[in-house]
Amino acid sequence: MQWLTIYKKECLESARNYKWVWVPLVFILFCIMDPLTTYYLPQILESTGGLPDGATFDIPTPPAANVFMMSISQINTLGVLVIALITMGTIAGERKSGVAELILVKPVSYTAYVTAKWAAHVTLVLLSIFVGLIASWYYVQLLFGDVSFIHALSTAGFYGLYIIFVISISLFMNTWTKTPGLVLFLTISIIMILNLVTSVFSHLLEWSPTNITSYLPSLLRTGEVGQDLWLASLFTIVTIVLLLFGAIQTLKRKEIV
């Protein structure tokens, strides 16, 4: 009951902030930008000019699956930044302004407070990403060729897991400091370091959460979920639970001063 109340309050706040309008729109834009620009690249080059007369070069049309993956890599950079930006103040800001104190003075458990906030953000962001990726799938289907909808959906599902992981990192950082800017900085740096380490030691860290993205192209083409992907997903779920647990514990120990 209590959990649902906080969850509803969070969703209401997101609606009042127009987040329920602009976050889905922005993710759709991110997702359809790449298929469109790739499709129109020859025309764009032609009309912007700069090529000497008679110069011709053929730009091979990329396979449909690659174009869909472009949308995902777009979310991986700009999308993750937007996610970090919208979650940076969710607990840190409330603690700074004293709203958290008002809430936690009532018999509200820290667990409910943290997990309800987490769930509210996960709902908003996952829905936005799914809508965006479906739009991207539609354009790829229209302009480039066949990509199985079921494969695209399962790709989006596994990618969603990685996004939940990103939100969890941000929420965990939220409990460590009261400054939203610092939360943003810490979240982005951790993801960048994870990406770097994983790409350097990729043969050793098959289970790393950031590796999920690199397993997605083969999932999209064949529809088969490889063993490495299962392992990485399992590890990601465990990490998400640990991050949430850690967040609750830090918040408890700080006792909201």
Binding site: L25, V26, I28, L36, A135, L143
Partner: peptide, 13 residues
């Protein structure tokens, strides 16, 4: 027909 959704989304935003 292809570009319209893009323009509409930007306008709504």
């Amino acid at each position: 027909a292809i570009i319209a959704p893009l323009l509409i989304i930007q306008l709504v935003l």
